[in-house]
Write a protein that binds this DNA or RNA. Structure first.
Length: 407
RNA sequence: GUGGAUAUAGCUCAGUUGGUUAGAGCACCAGAUUGUGGCUCUGGGGGUCGUGGGUUCGAGUCCCAUUAUCCACCCCA
């Protein structure tokens, strides 16, 4: 038997319904904020992600589905969504238009990781990217947008925010931090000692208890922001407070990807185990320039769709549509014909196998159909159709000609 | 990539110190009820016991390998 590849899953039935419900809800809300749907290729040049996500990150180093295609190009399945959108933005020369552009996207992403709860090799993200808006009001607005999506879906979350500074203050802070870390190196776990070189900021959110205590006196980025970053961060907090969106400042919050600056945020669920982030994002003002475009401010986020589906309760499914069946071979032609007309406006299922009434009712019930429409001996004789409303438990007989009109 | 747990029917799981023909519940099909769904009762179909080796007179059970799943680490949405 051929099974799906490791970490890849079929999306069907209940989950498929949830997926559609989520995408519809999120898309509608994002559109109200001015975002337009954008679809970029799933396959891109590997260099795109090496440059944007960062050569040092695990995503690029060991988690990319990367290969040489038949034309000799070094390509990979996208491990995240932002880079492709930025690539689109630049290759369509939107960076030269000086305008404001907002895009929403959703689709599959691929990372060659060991699967666990809330983490798969093929997973889906829904994301928004806003270009050309440098005001901190936009950072706030995007957080508001995400909270609206979760509120609409009835999903509980907590919001954590931080500021990562800018090219002005971040490098200085990093130096300061590395200096501090080198001093306490012996008290840190093996992973953290390695991280001092590869990604010193990451040391801050190590889960190891020894590291945590050793780090209690570490310099904090929020105490080392330049004046513009500082005032933007203060403004962001003020805007969130005034709008009633609850949040906490997590000074150790670091975004996983290299390109973020200033505002960083994460929406966390407490019901998911270790992989508890359901949305993450922030500002990335340097990325467009870094990928060869004109300097353009940008801010965005992505929601982990599978993680959200795990938390999502579908609204109760109502009985809907028509079930057609015949009790003898002679009746089948008739129900097929009527179903065709019904399908102009309604869902119809036709059972081609003649069955007893009881069996038809049972099937119609199981399919959650609203009406069970049957042609038996009498109906064939009188050219009528017997209909039972499975919800109201009422039944009636209508002539075949009048059927579609009377429904 | 590292660690732990698990793998028996479509699903959830029993299966004794290794011993005849591998079981239950749910689901499915049929009948009880010749044209009335959800409840009840009766019957039925459905299994290479993850895969490959090994030990043994005999393996679902013991050993080795392998693959997959789940959870955690690393990393990340």
């Amino acid at each position: 038997m051929i099974k799906p590849l490791r970490g890849m899953r079929d999306l069907a039935f209940e989950d498929a319904k949830k997926f559609e419900y989520f995408i519809d809800t999120a898309t509608n809300i994002a559109k109200k904020y001015g975002y337009e749907y954008l679809e970029t290729p799933i396959l891109e040049e590997s260099a795109l992600f090496k440059r944007s996500v960062g050569e040092s990150s695990d995503i690029v180093n060991k988690e990319m589905y990367q290969f040489i295609d038949k034309g000799g190009n070094d390509v990979c399945l996208r491990p995240e969504g932002t880079a492709g959108v930025v690539r689109f933005f630049i290759s369509n020369k939107l960076d030269r238009q000086d305008g404001k552009y907002k895009f929403l996207y959703y689709g599959p992403m691929f990372r060659y990781e060991r699967p666990q709860k809330g983490r798969f090799r093929e997973f889906h993200q829904f994301g928004c990217e806003s270009f050309g808006e440098e005001s901190v009001y936009e950072d706030y607005t995007i957080i508001e947008l995400i909270s609206k999506i979760f509120d609409e879906l009835n999903i509980a979350y907590s919001l954590e925010i931080n500021s990562l500074g800018c090219s002005e203050c971040m490098p200085k802070y990093k130096e300061k931090l590395v200096e501090f870390l080198e001093d306490i190196k012996d008290e840190l776990c093996e992973d953290c000692q390695r991280r001092i070189k590869t990604n010193p900021i990451r040391v801050l959110d190590c889960k190891n208890q020894n590291c945590k205590t050793a780090l209690s006196n570490a310099p904090k980025i929020t105490d080392n922001l330049c004046s513009s970053c500082h005032s933007d961060f203060e403004k962001l907090k003020e805007l969130l407070e005034n709008s009633g969106i609850e949040f906490s400042v997590n000074k150790n919050l670091v975004r996983g990807l290299d390109y973020y600056n200033k505002s960083a945020f994460e929406f966390i669920s407490s019901n998911l185990g270790a992989q508890n982030a359901i949305a993450g994002g922030g500002r990335y003002d340097k990325l467009v320039e870094f990928l060869g475009g004109k300097p353009t401010a940008a801010v965005g986020f992505a929601i982990g769709v599978e993680r959200v589906l795990e938390l999502l309760e579908l609204p109760e499914q109502k009985r809907e549509g028509y079930y057609f069946g015949a009790m003898s071979k002679e009746g089948v032609d008739k129900v097929v014909k009527v179903a065709k007309d019904i399908r102009k406006d309604n869902r119809a299922f036709v059972e081609f196998e003649p069955k007893k009434l009881k069996a038809h009712l049972k099937s119609a019930d199981r399919q959650n159909s609203r009406y069970c429409c049957i042609v038996g001996e009498d109906e064939l004789k009188n050219d009528t159709i017997w209909v039972k409303d499975l919800e109201e438990k009422r039944e009636f007989i209508v002539s075949s000609d009048e059927f579609v009109k009377n429904i």
